[in-house]
């Protein structure tokens, strides 16, 4: 199987999987511990509106996705903060409306729409080297934020009220976090596609939380798990000629089930 490293696209694919796993491990841990899974899935789907806008208006659809996902993240974040009830309905509507807008804009666009499926289901085998640098940059920003604001982010995730009383700028940090979720979602779009983003964002941290007693370790473990899942998924998809995004997600899901079984047998977290 070593011949796969001879292809540049395969080397780039593996590198993309590793880079995305770092952002996933850190941001995904916040998403899982803050119960933002539904919101994050909504952000991912709403981002499709940006893809459509990019096609329609003739600019890079990834830029459209960035704009839409960050806007959706901030909007949903603000709604969740302000309202007390029924936020899931509003989020569900933004989720579907964003997606529908994207579909209609693409309908209205003339001509051949080449890599449309790639945005929905991932196109890890077509990651240009330039994108790897962008992923690396985002990883650096995310890890730096997580290190600098670790104690505040931990406090907000565990007990927001207490953090607020201790004069932590809860709302500002929360919105920064939402922006990072939006950017991470777009970065992951390359690897597993918008539709499956949520699984790769949440499964590694969910497993990580089962086996750690410290949020920092959860993030580190989740990042490594993500790397393992993307790599195995990629190799499986290459060997059997399967869709790589779906292969990565199924590998992750099987691992999650196994982790739940192991954990229920009562092994203490370390």
């Amino acid at each position: 199987m070593t011949e796969i490293f001879e292809y540049e696209f395969m080397r780039n694919a593996l590198a993309a999987g590793l880079l995305v796993s770092v952002a996933c491990g850190v941001i995904g841990t916040f998403v899982v511990l803050n119960r933002m899974v539904f919101v994050s899935a909504g952000i991912a789907h709403a981002a499709y509106g940006g893809i459509g806008l990019g096609y329609f208006a003739g600019f890079n659809p990834v830029l459209g996705a960035v704009g839409f996902s960050v806007a959706a993240a901030l909007g949903m974040g603000a709604i969740e903060r302000a309202a007390r009830q029924r936020t899931d309905t509003v989020i569900g509507v933004i989720w579907a409306a964003g997606m529908a807008l994207g579909i209609l804009l693409i309908d209205l666009t003339e001509g051949y729409k080449a890599d449309l499926m790639g945005y929905l289901f991932g196109s890890i085998l077509a990651v240009p080297t330039f994108d790897l640098w962008i992923m690396l940059g985002l990883d650096v920003v995310i890890v730096a934020l997580a290190v600098l604001y670790y104690k505040e982010l931990l406090a907000i995730s565990f007990d927001e009220n207490f953090a607020r009383i201790q004069n932590v700028p809860v709302d500002r940090l929360y919105l920064i976090l939402m922006c990072m979720v939006g950017l991470t979602v777009v970065m992951m779009m390359r690897v597993v596609g918008l539709i499956l983003v949520i699984a790769l964002l949440t499964i590694p941290p969910a497993i990580g939380a089962l086996f750690t007693r410290d949020m920092r370790k959860t993030m580190i473990l989740a990042s490594f798990l993500g790397m393992i899942f993307t790599t195995i998924g990629l190799l499986v998809s290459f060997a059997f000629d399967l869709t790589s995004g779906a292969a990565i997600i199924l590998v992750s899901a099987v691992a999650y089930l196994a982790a739940l079984v192991i954990r229920s047998q009562g092994r203490a977290p370390s």
Partner: peptide, 24 residues
């Protein structure tokens, strides 16, 4: 509190010092 939250007792107690330390 979420009982599955990965946090040790001492890390919870340390949060009491948040207000004394600035950001970062």
């Amino acid at each position: 509190f979420d009982r599955a939250f990965p946090i040790r007792a001492i890390d919870v107690v340390r949060m009491g010092r948040l207000g004394r330390r600035g950001l970062r």
